Simulated assay, not measured.
Amino acid sequence: MKVSRVNIAYVITRSDSVGGAHVHVRDLSIHLLGKGHQVTVLAGGQGPFTQELRDQGIPHRSLRYLARSICPSRDVRGILELRRELSALMPDIVSTHSSKAGWLGRLAAKSLGLPVLFTAHGWAFTEGVAKRERRFYAFAERLAGPFADRIITVSEHDRQLALAYRVAPPKQVVTIHNGVPDVPLALRARPERQPPRLVMIARFEPQKAHSALLSAIAGLADLSWELEFIGDGPLLEAVKAQVNGLGLEQRVRFLGARKDVAERLAGAQVFVLISNWEGLPRTILEAMRAGLPVVASDVGGVHEAVMEGETGFLVPRGQVGALRERLLRLIRVPDLRIQMGRSGRARYEHYFTFERMYHETMAVYQEVLAARRQRSKP
């Protein structure tokens, strides 16, 4: 199918960190520009993300009033600022990412009559979030839902959650699973190597459960293993203190935010992601791409990527004993790591490539634009 050239504006809330939503926008932008489409990224503030956009040659604009925290006066300025930028760009379609950008971006785009999408990289009203916050965010998403021509969820779990909370009617919500670009053969892992190195890539924030992982693996101190944490965030010092309190400072390394994630995964033997809630984490897909077995919390859409007992293990939220038992099996049995790593790589190749995600995303863009053209006919 021939795809017409599209002018796309991406809107994302913050630039002071680089998370899954940022990488999603960055990778799509690079690919779209390479295909001859026009792309501009509108991001709140400046920081590591806007630096990455500069490094990749992606057109972007920093917004002064688009911020994560809720402040009515600032948010009104944010809508007006977005409206000015979009009015100057007049893109064919606006694609918003993250909750605040989703709310303000949809309002600004609709006020200009522009088609607009919202991609939910995990709902703020998902299981694991405090009940009071869940009620607030669900209410806010129901208010904003009608302003989106389409809502994209990165997992079917999140699509069903949106329908259960009546965020939008079924025809308006579509699932497009995350996908990640492939890596060279040299960046495939060797899961059989000893002693096994475990790696967890995640920001140190309440969403992630670094503490639970440490509590679990502290009970395996008599075995040979290493653990790497990649990421930064407000809870970093608290986790470091826990490591010292458990006497694991010689076994656990903190590498901070890294740009060589693929290389770190290639040198690992097990990938771990312990969380309180998730959408569909890109880091899990990157680990499967590398050929690593995955141990992850059974939250959100994680079970749509990790096949229990086949590509890794799923652990119920908060169950430290079950987590310890799964880690024990993988640390002790190199052949199990090899088998699960191969199965994970095959699953990545079949379901989670970047090309598949790109084509499904472009199909949604074209569908929205075609519907708009149809409505504008006399």
Rank of each mutant, 00 (worst) to 15 (best):
R203N: 12
I79P: 11
L32V: 02
S4K: 11
V239E: 14
V183A: 10
D335R: 09
V239A: 08
A346F: 00
E349D: 09
P91A: 03
R5V: 04
H177E: 15
D335H: 07
L163E: 06
E325I: 02
L143D: 12
V368T: 05
A216W: 01
D55S: 14
S297V: 06
D92T: 00
P181Y: 01
R345H: 07
V167H: 02
P184E: 07
T119E: 12
S62I: 01
G44L: 14
E249L: 13
M340N: 03
I201F: 03
L327M: 15
L107I: 15
I230W: 11
L273E: 00
T153W: 04
F271P: 01
R84N: 11
E52N: 05
L82E: 07
K110P: 02
A202G: 06
F313Y: 10
F147L: 13
R134H: 04
E304Q: 14
A148S: 15
P59H: 08
R193T: 13
Y165D: 14
L314R: 01
G78T: 03
R289Q: 04
M90W: 14
T40W: 13
G57P: 05
Q366W: 11
E237D: 12
G291R: 01
E81F: 04
G245Y: 06
M362A: 15
S343K: 12
S376V: 03
R326H: 07
E226C: 02
F139Y: 12
K208M: 01
A9D: 01
V39A: 08
E367Q: 14
K100R: 13
G309Q: 02
P59F: 04
R135F: 08
V243Q: 12
S95Y: 11
L330P: 01
A290M: 06
G233I: 06
G45Y: 00
K100E: 09
T126I: 02
A43N: 09
R332P: 01
L187K: 05
R64K: 14
I8E: 09
D222A: 10
A9F: 03
P281D: 10
T153P: 04
E304W: 02
Q51M: 10
E286M: 04
H210P: 11
A322I: 12
Y65P: 10
A305S: 14
A257C: 07
L323V: 05
W123H: 11
A144Y: 01
P196F: 02
T13H: 13
Y165R: 11
D222P: 06
R5S: 07
F139W: 11
W123L: 10
P146F: 04
E127Y: 05
G256W: 03
H60K: 13
G19M: 08
V252N: 09
I338D: 06
Q194H: 04
A221S: 15
T119V: 10
H31N: 13
R54F: 00
G321N: 11
L28R: 12
E81I: 05
A218P: 00
H210Y: 01
Q339A: 15
A262H: 00
A168I: 05
